[in-house]
């Protein structure tokens, strides 16, 4: 009897040993598996985030040693530069314009597709999503032609008799900004619509049915049932729209180049000019980094604010 117990014990020990070995081997393999991503992550995410702050304290053209420490000079210079604030202001006008245009319209079309035209959802979704998957830079170039003086937009308005002489829509500050916002919204609309469609899928059907049985009109259903339930999703969608439009770059560079007279200049374009496209002499990597930090913190503050609203809406 004792011998049997001993035997079982030793075999369990052997088993645990081999299981342990297997477990250890699995852990080693797991480390091997995450190693490439970890390496990429450290080199291309962690290090750049740290250095984006470090560079901002130096006067540095990007060539030679990083040894000209200037403290907060770059930040002071950025905060005192009217063209930085001009770009900052334009970025916010663009962000607010795009968000205000997109939120209600994309929700409306998503609800139409989700509730009324269920069977043709895929067809219309493809149609309205198409601009999203096209190259923004190329769209910007094409749109420059569409809205240029004597372009197809002028042609259409002339034919319809709305205007009687060609107008350079991108040549005057206010209309140029409006065109940038409209094209940006058009480009992003499909994305917002798909976000909403995903959000609408989460609506509990029985609640909607109960509301219908209780005789709620469509408008009441929207106001008292759908919007409150969708609130958390809505804030995520707003967040995605806001952060993506605050970093508009490709579209502005190719559509207006920031003009006329910097009236559509945005922060990412402003920074880009100092870092990679120095019209006057050497690049200023340090100054560009400082401007980037200021803007990064501003974007972060907005994200925090929206995140706070999100948490409040969930309670």
């Amino acid at each position: 009897m004792a011998e049997v117990v001993k035997k079982t014990n030793s075999s369990t020990v052997m088993k645990t040993n081999s299981v342990n070995r297997l477990h250890r081997k699995r852990k080693i393999w797991a480390y091997v598996f995450i190693f490439p991503q970890l390496l990429f992550f450290i080199v291309f995410t962690i290090y750049p985030i740290i250095m984006s702050y470090v560079y901002s304290f130096y006067d540095w053209p990007g060539i030679g040693a990083l040894d000209d420490f200037v403290g907060l000079d770059n930040f002071v210079r950025a905060l005192q530069d009217p063209s930085f604030w001009n770009a900052f202001k334009n970025t916010f006008i663009y962000m607010i314009g795009v968000t205000v245009l997109l939120l209600p319209t994309s929700l409306l079309v998503a609800m139409l597709l989700n509730n009324v035209l269920k069977r043709s959802t895929v067809f219309y979704r493809t149609l309205f999503f198409l601009p999203v998957v096209t190259t923004t830079a190329i769209v910007g170039i094409v749109m420059r032609k569409v809205f240029g003086a004597g372009g197809i937009f002028d042609e259409i308005l002339l034919t319809l008799g709305i205007i009687d002489a060609p107008f350079a829509w991108l040549g005057s500050p206010v209309t140029a900004m409006i065109i940038v916002i409209v094209v940006g919204a058009w480009k992003f609309f499909g994305m917002m619509m798909v976000y909403w469609l995903a959000g609408l899928q989460t609506l509990p059907k029985d609640v909607l049915e109960a509301a219908s049985i209780d005789g709620c009109k469509t408008w009441q259903k929207l106001r008292y049932v759908i919007i409150p339930i969708l609130m958390p999703v809505a804030l995520v969608i707003i967040l995605l729209c806001v952060t993506s439009s605050l970093h508009v770059f490709d579209l502005v560079l190719t559509l207006t180049g920031g003009g006329p007279y910097y009236s559509t200049d945005v922060v990412d374009l402003y920074i880009y000019r100092y870092a990679f496209n120095p019209d006057l002499g050497l690049p200023s990597m340090g100054y560009a980094s400082a401007a980037g930090v200021v803007f990064g913190v501003a974007v972060f503050a907005i994200v925090l604010l929206l995140g706070w609203l999100l948490r409040k809406s969930r309670i």
Partner: peptide, 23 residues
């Protein structure tokens, strides 16, 4: 690891393309 990769999406960062360009 999971915490770190998700956290980097939300922390404020500067113009990270310059360090990547330098690398």
């Amino acid at each position: 690891f999971i915490f770190l990769i998700t956290a980097t999406m939300f922390i404020p960062k500067g113009y990270t393309i310059i360090p990547i360009y330098m690398i």
